[in-house]
Amino acid sequence: MKTRTGLAFLAPALILFGVFVLYPMLTAFSYAFFEWQGTSRQGFAGLSNFSALVNRAPFKTDLPTALLHNVLFFVGTMLVQNTIGLSVATLLHRRARTRRMLQTLYAMPYLVSPIVIGYLWTLLLSPTFGPVNQLLTKIGLEQFALPWLGDPKTALWVVILVSVWQWVGFPVLLYGAALGGVPEELTEAARVDGASHGQVFRKITFPLLIPAIGTVSVLTFIFAMEAFALPFAFGGSTGNPAGSTDFVSLLFYRSAFDSGAVDAIGTSSALATVLFLIIFGGAMAATKVLRRHERRMAS
């Protein structure tokens, strides 16, 4: 009786999950193994759609660059967003008065759609009318008035930094909560023993924050690997200029929806499957490392 009641309570969620998540995912997965003529499915294709990702243009050339950009996006976000997030959270933790308000303020941009953010920053950074470059010129920093989004050397980093600007409130909130969970007895005891602020942070707070850092890293990894909206808003579906802001999901988008290839469904499904495996595998591996670390800490 008990299990049956339990199942009955689970049923609505399970059915919704099955119909709207599991079923579409499995069908997309199966699409990658067939030949396609437009939307009509032909014979079994084996792995040929997957080998096209390695052997055929544009995937042969675009997929490695796009994947590299995803990885850079992850590394950049990890370094900048999480460092800033952790510092801000630590500073806010010591501050009782305006903490709530500041946390909300940091999280504000996060409430705006990435498409809107991208559009706004495109206007701000425009080399012809953008206020950013006008300001830089006025205060005598002409050498920094660059075509930010027009130069492949800077465009990707603009995308990363704007993403950091938008999402920094997220690690602030998570680290804030984790810092609240660090037992005060420990830090107090250390302080009594004569440890400095820095020592307390390095020896006590930071190790206790590792599970939170791990969670944030896994979420950042997933976020960076499936980045779409912001790069799309900045560089369109082709990663302008000259493919310098191209990402795997953009490559998927243009090969699935913008192409004249009759086998688009097959190759793009293969690409989606590969992307899923990368994200799933990466997240699983990271979680495993994290668990092991937690267990070591507990013992």
Partner: peptide
């Protein structure tokens, strides 16, 4: 063409 042309969006070009 406008300066830094690869940074100029088509809407910017129309505005110019």
């Amino acid at each position: 063409f406008p300066k830094n042309v690869t940074g100029v969006a088509v809407t910017d070009a129309q505005t110019l």
